[in-house]
Lab assay of single mutants.
Amino acid sequence: STHNELEKNRRAHLRLCLERLKVLIPLGPDCTRHTTLGLLNKAKAHIKKLE
């Protein structure tokens, strides 16, 4: 159905954006896999440090 396709595309776009963010944020050497929340929290902390 159309709704399923739209949802699939939305999730794919979100995944792509999170992958791009992961490249930009210093995550530390001990981190190989992150939850979305963990990645967003690290991004928030990094932005605050830059301010």
Rank of each mutant, 00 (worst) to 15 (best):
K22T: 01
K42Q: 05
H34W: 12
A43F: 09
D30Q: 13
T36K: 10
A43D: 02
C17Q: 02
N41R: 11
E5H: 05
L14H: 09
K8P: 04
N4S: 11
H34M: 10
A45H: 09
V23W: 12
K42E: 01
L27V: 11
K8R: 06
L24E: 01
G38A: 11
K8D: 03
C17R: 01
E5Y: 10
L39M: 08
A43P: 04
H46C: 10
R15I: 02
T2K: 11
T35H: 11
C17W: 12
L18K: 04
L14C: 06
L18A: 07
C17I: 03
K49A: 05
A43K: 00
R11E: 03
G38D: 07
R10W: 13
H46I: 07
R11C: 07
L40R: 02
R15V: 02
T32R: 09
L40V: 10
L6D: 10
K48Y: 12
L6W: 03
G38M: 13
R15S: 08
H46M: 13
C17L: 13
P29G: 10
P29E: 06
H34V: 12
G28M: 12
R15H: 04
L14A: 08
L21K: 01
E19S: 10
A45Y: 09
L50M: 05
H13M: 09
K49Y: 01
L16N: 10
S1W: 00
D30H: 12
L14F: 13
K48C: 06
E5T: 11
P29A: 15
G28R: 13
T32D: 05
G28Q: 10
H46Y: 10
L14N: 01
L21N: 00
T32H: 09
T2I: 07
L40P: 00
N4M: 07
L27W: 14
G38K: 12
A45M: 07
T36Q: 08
L24V: 08
R20S: 03
E51C: 14
E19P: 05
T36E: 04
R10H: 10
N41V: 02
K44Y: 08
A45K: 11
K42R: 10
E51G: 15
D30M: 13
K49R: 11
H46S: 14
L18G: 00
L6S: 13
A12F: 01
I47F: 14
E5N: 15
L18C: 03
R11P: 10
L39H: 00
R10I: 07
K49P: 02
G28I: 15
T2P: 06
N41K: 13
T36D: 02
T35N: 12
T35L: 11
L50K: 06
E19M: 02
L6M: 07
K48L: 01
E7Q: 09
R10N: 09
T36C: 13
K8I: 04
K8C: 07
N4G: 08
L18R: 02
A43N: 03
L18V: 08
L40G: 02
H13A: 04
G38H: 09
H13W: 06
L50V: 03
R10T: 15
R10F: 09
G38I: 04
K44G: 07
L40S: 00
A45V: 11
V23G: 15
L24H: 09
L40Q: 00
L24Y: 08
K42H: 01
R15A: 08
P29F: 15
C31D: 09
R10L: 10
I25R: 04
G38C: 08
H34A: 12
L40C: 00
R33T: 03
T32G: 12
G28C: 09
T36H: 09
V23K: 15
T36M: 14
N41P: 05
S1R: 03
H3N: 09
G28E: 05
H13V: 06
I25N: 14
L37G: 10
H46E: 04
N4T: 13
R10P: 15
L6I: 08
N41L: 01
C17G: 05
I47K: 01
K49M: 02
L21C: 04
A12P: 10
K8A: 05
C17S: 02
L16A: 11
A43Y: 00
K48N: 02
L16T: 13
R20N: 06
I25W: 15
C31P: 12
E51Y: 15
K8T: 05
L14D: 07
E19C: 03
N41I: 02
E7V: 08
H13C: 04
T32M: 15
L16C: 07
E5Q: 08
L21M: 05
L27E: 05
K48M: 02
T32K: 07
N4Q: 12
A43S: 02
A12I: 01
K42W: 08
D30V: 14
E51W: 11
P26G: 15
T2L: 04
K8E: 07
T2S: 05
L50T: 04
K22W: 00
R20P: 01
N4K: 09
K22E: 00
L50P: 06
L37Y: 09
K49I: 01
A45F: 06
L16E: 13
R15E: 04
A12W: 08
E7F: 07
R10V: 10
I25K: 00
H13E: 08
E5L: 05
L18M: 05
L14Q: 04
T32F: 15
A43W: 06
L21I: 09
H3P: 12
H3R: 09
R20H: 01
I47C: 04
C31K: 15
G28Y: 13
L21Y: 01
C31T: 11
G38V: 07
I25E: 05
A45W: 04
N9S: 04
A12V: 05
E51L: 09
L37E: 06
H3C: 12
L37R: 14
K8N: 06
S1K: 11
L14E: 02
N9K: 13
A12R: 06
K8F: 08
C31F: 11
G38F: 03
E5A: 06
T32E: 06
L40F: 12
H13I: 04
L6K: 10
L40A: 03
L24Q: 03
D30P: 13
L37C: 07
K48T: 01
L14P: 10
L27R: 15
K42S: 06
E7I: 04
R15N: 01
C17Y: 07
H34S: 12
P26V: 02
N4R: 07
T35Y: 15
L27N: 15
E7C: 07
R11Q: 07
C17P: 08
D30K: 14
I25Y: 06
N41Q: 02
T36V: 15
E51T: 15
L6H: 15
T35R: 14
C31W: 14
A12T: 13
R10M: 08
H13G: 13
T2M: 02
E5I: 08
A12Q: 06
L6V: 11
L27P: 15
K22A: 00
R11Y: 11
A45N: 11
N4L: 04
E19D: 07
V23H: 15
K8M: 04
A12H: 02
L24S: 05
T2Q: 13
K22V: 00
E7T: 04
K44E: 03
H13R: 12
P26H: 12
L14T: 05
T36Y: 06
